[in-house]
Simulated assay, not measured.
Amino acid sequence: MEVVRLSSKGQLVLPKNIRDRLSLKQGLELKVELIGGKIVLEPVCQEARADWRCWRGSLRGERALEEHLEEHRQEVVHDD
Rank of each mutant, 00 (worst) to 15 (best):
M1C: 11
M1G: 15
M1Q: 15
E2F: 14
V4M: 07
V4W: 06
V4N: 07
L6E: 14
S7L: 07
S8A: 10
S8M: 13
K9Q: 13
K9M: 04
G10Y: 04
G10I: 01
G10H: 02
L12I: 11
L12P: 06
L14N: 02
P15D: 00
K16P: 05
I18Q: 12
I18L: 15
I18E: 08
I18F: 15
R19W: 03
D20P: 10
R21I: 00
L22R: 13
L22Q: 10
L22W: 09
S23F: 12
G27P: 01
G27Q: 06
L28Y: 03
E29N: 06
V32Y: 08
V32F: 12
E33G: 04
E33Y: 03
E33K: 12
E33C: 03
L34V: 14
L34H: 15
I35S: 11
G36L: 03
G37S: 01
K38I: 01
K38F: 04
I39H: 02
L41A: 06
E42N: 09
V44Q: 10
C45W: 05
Q46G: 09
E47Q: 14
A48I: 11
A48S: 09
A48V: 08
A48W: 05
A50Y: 01
W52N: 07
W52H: 13
R53M: 01
C54A: 03
R56W: 00
G57A: 03
G57S: 03
S58F: 11
S58I: 10
L59S: 15
G61I: 08
E62H: 09
R63Q: 07
R63C: 02
L65G: 09
E66Y: 04
E67Y: 05
E67H: 01
H68D: 10
L69S: 12
L69I: 13
E71L: 02
E71R: 05
E71N: 14
H72Q: 08
H72S: 02
R73Y: 07
R73H: 10
R73L: 05
V77L: 02
V77D: 05
H78Q: 12
H78V: 02
H78C: 00
D79A: 02
D79M: 05
D79P: 00
D80P: 04
D80H: 09
